[in-house]
Amino acid sequence: MPAIHKMRKPATRLRPRAVFLGLATLTVSVALSGCTKLDTVSPSTVRKDAADAKPADQGKFGTVDCRKAKCIALTFDAGPSENTPRLLKILKEKAVPATFFTLGKNHIVKYPELVKQMDAEGHEVASHTWSHKILTKIDAKEARAELERPNKAIEKLIGKKPTLMRPPQGRTNDTVNKLSRELGLSEILWTVTAKDYTTNDSALIEKRVLEQSSRDGIILLHDIYKGTVPAVPGIIDALKQRGYVFVTVPQLLAPGKAEPGKVYR
């Protein structure tokens, strides 16, 4: 999922934890650095390949055909948190599905009922690893544990393992790719970032998202920061006015499906 861009001066001073998690918005050129550069696959490519496949091999469209509709996916990293109940209420009121890349330690463990609520309300529950360790900087054994533990925790809560994973900082390489394939996980990066770790200014977060959004976009936000959730209603309303339809990441790819071990953005 990124060369480091010069960031605006934060509106407020953030805690070390916020800065740590905020590094998740590096650009794709760095995200895919490692021993070998890995190619990413776009939603439109997945849909086209599915359309060219035999009918028996095609998936279902679900609620909308993104080959025709102007689709965009809203995703949230590093939760759930104390801000998530308000976010879920907003999403329910706006009838917008989202994809949540949840953290295990201090998040899934602390807020298990919110994970259940996400699933029950039609959102996609995915993984952001167990403790946000940079997978390309640890050995394969430790990286496997970072990926396996949230899988098991999520399955215990909602009865199914996640099929999507977002690597911390968007950093991946051949080893992470191989582990993901073995564990049945597809890696999902992003095309839109509000850099909401740099500011608590909700209006600025909304502005950044709206400036970058385009068809088939994957929006990266974090429901752990105070300024983010208040920005969501404005983002949703403005994009709906522009004709966008909000979908989960799997819906964005339908009738195609994300394949384990591949990287999408």
Rank of each mutant, 00 (worst) to 15 (best):
I4W: 04
K6Y: 05
R13H: 12
R15P: 13
A18W: 13
A24E: 10
V28Q: 11
S29K: 07
A31H: 04
L32E: 09
L32R: 12
S33F: 13
C35S: 08
C35I: 08
D39G: 14
S42N: 05
S44A: 10
T45F: 01
V46A: 02
V46F: 05
A51I: 07
A51G: 05
D52P: 10
A53S: 11
K54A: 09
D57C: 07
Q58A: 02
Q58N: 10
T63M: 06
V64K: 02
D65H: 09
T75N: 06
F76N: 12
D77C: 14
T84W: 04
T84E: 02
P85H: 08
R86S: 07
E93Y: 01
E93K: 12
K94Y: 09
V96Y: 04
T99I: 15
K105Q: 15
N106W: 09
N106M: 14
H107V: 05
K110T: 14
M118P: 00
D119W: 06
A120K: 15
H123C: 03
E124K: 00
A126E: 12
H128I: 11
S131V: 06
I134V: 14
E142S: 13
E142P: 01
A143L: 06
R144G: 10
E146W: 06
E146Y: 03
L147S: 05
E148V: 10
R149I: 05
P150R: 04
I154R: 01
I154T: 06
I158G: 09
K161M: 14
P162K: 15
T163L: 02
T163P: 00
L164Q: 08
L164P: 03
M165P: 01
R166S: 03
R166V: 08
P168I: 15
Q169W: 11
V176I: 03
K178S: 07
S180C: 04
S180P: 05
E182P: 11
G184D: 10
W190R: 12
A194E: 00
Y197A: 13
T199S: 02
N200Y: 00
S202K: 03
S202F: 02
E206D: 01
E206K: 02
E211M: 04
E211D: 04
Q212I: 05
S214G: 12
R215T: 15
R215N: 11
G217S: 11
L220N: 06
L221V: 07
D223Q: 14
Y225M: 07
P233I: 02
P233N: 03
I236T: 01
Q241D: 13
R242P: 08
G243Q: 04
L252C: 05
L252T: 03
L253T: 11
G256E: 14
K257Q: 15
P260I: 10
